[in-house]
Design a protein around this nucleic acid. Sequence first.
DNA 1: CCTTGTATGCTTGCATACAAGCATGCTAGC
DNA 2: GCTAGCATGCTTGTATGCAAGCATACAAGG
Lengths: 257, 257
Amino acid sequence: MPSPRSAAVLPIPPRDSRRGAAGAAYRWLRGEILAGALPPGAPLSENEVAQRLGVSRTPVREAFIRLENEGLLAVTPQVGTTVAPIDLEQVADGQFLRESIETRTVAMAATAATSRDATDLKALLRDQGRAVAKHDQAGFLVLDDKLHQRLVTIAGRPRVWHTIEDLKAQLDRVRVLSLGDAQWLAAIHVQHEEIVEAVLAGRPDDAAIAMGRHLRAVFASIDTIAVAHPEYFRGAPGKPARQAPDVKPPGRTGGNP
Amino acid sequence: MPSPRSAAVLPIPPRDSRRGAAGAAYRWLRGEILAGALPPGAPLSENEVAQRLGVSRTPVREAFIRLENEGLLAVTPQVGTTVAPIDLEQVADGQFLRESIETRTVAMAATAATSRDATDLKALLRDQGRAVAKHDQAGFLVLDDKLHQRLVTIAGRPRVWHTIEDLKAQLDRVRVLSLGDAQWLAAIHVQHEEIVEAVLAGRPDDAAIAMGRHLRAVFASIDTIAVAHPEYFRGAPGKPARQAPDVKPPGRTGGNP
DNA sequence: CCTTGTATGCTTGCATACAAGCATGCTAGC
DNA sequence: GCTAGCATGCTTGTATGCAAGCATACAAGG
């Protein structure tokens, strides 16, 4: 394990599913969902995914179970499986929890950061600045996560990042929908700079305040997105099911000759 | 499902697995583990549990996957499955997260509680007092959870209780080990009274402080338990594996005639 | 007596087959 | 033309069979 960078956190990958076919299916599906390639409401079936990945239903089913537990899939017993719609209440709860946790950890980080941490944080900010300049949104999101993870690690709670990751999942699906706005990325970058500045200055209260502002700002963009993409959210009127059976592609449902 | 106790909380069981055999296996195993009937380190096998429940391996396997994700089982691919040892760091992280969340929600509850909430909270405290008087530890633990859940509901975040439940799992396994101490229950009850008093008085800061004290007090008992039951914790020296092959019960392993 | 080699049984992971239920499309009747 | 009923294919849930790997117990040799 070459550990490319920012390692030295946990020598043990505790349980996290890098098992063969099942883990591969899980990671692939999760990535597709969080990246938006499988949008909320998209129908899935165990058979389809199994054929797609060249495995049987069993490992795919295992992945489905885990994704359902994370709230990313909605399995209806004898009907089918779809990518779970984004529940605005759930997103709000996730934001609330993140704020509760990260405002505290960032304050702790402000009192625990070493000069080595300062170097790392500054490097992350520099990389983020480059990503903003290049409009590299995907790269920026990765660096965003790395900064937040680094902060909780500095706070002495590296493992809580795992919990935050779970909470983050719903928010991430919204986040990718807000792509394309370079100003938005720049604003986030500025907020990160404010947070890191307070941390490195040893001002825990300011750090917590800056983190709270940052997380709320991210959350504030959700309403806009919900209006722009109502079909992705629960309770939205854009319910395409039960469309009038006018056009009938000679497709694969219904009786055959 | 007659729901023997602790109903009337959420009309919707959002996703929580009351599916047939798989859900039953999950709930049974989880209950046994959290109750301590299946102590940390206890070996399990899919076949054994399947026969025990009268189903096939498949639903049992589904339950194993979910319990592994919750950190309650440790599955080693070609070796076997055991009830996960209690990781003190993981427990500490869970406590930290609970404190981060519940100190905030209880403060919110202090500003949001209505007279109806006051009645409910007082009733819960009264019931807890009765449970303490009767040394009904199991009943007290249930009422403990109900109080905490009620508080987050009053705070307007009923769904965060689901997250807290996940975090609680590791702590609960420790909690049952500390049974038998009536003074301990009484102390918790007093702490609850302090919390509710601050909430009903509309003093959010005091409520948060009282909640923090309460959660830390629960956590403080863990070290004592870890000393008393080292074999249940990760990294403990009580590692019975590789015991000298002296005594050999003519057991069920190894070659047959 | 100790060490090494071998064989057996167990375990989980994966693939496949069967069962039950629902939604949909077609067809018969009004 | 419209409605009610029926049949088909799909879906997930469950059961079973096969494969690969490890730990252990036994046996043979030094």
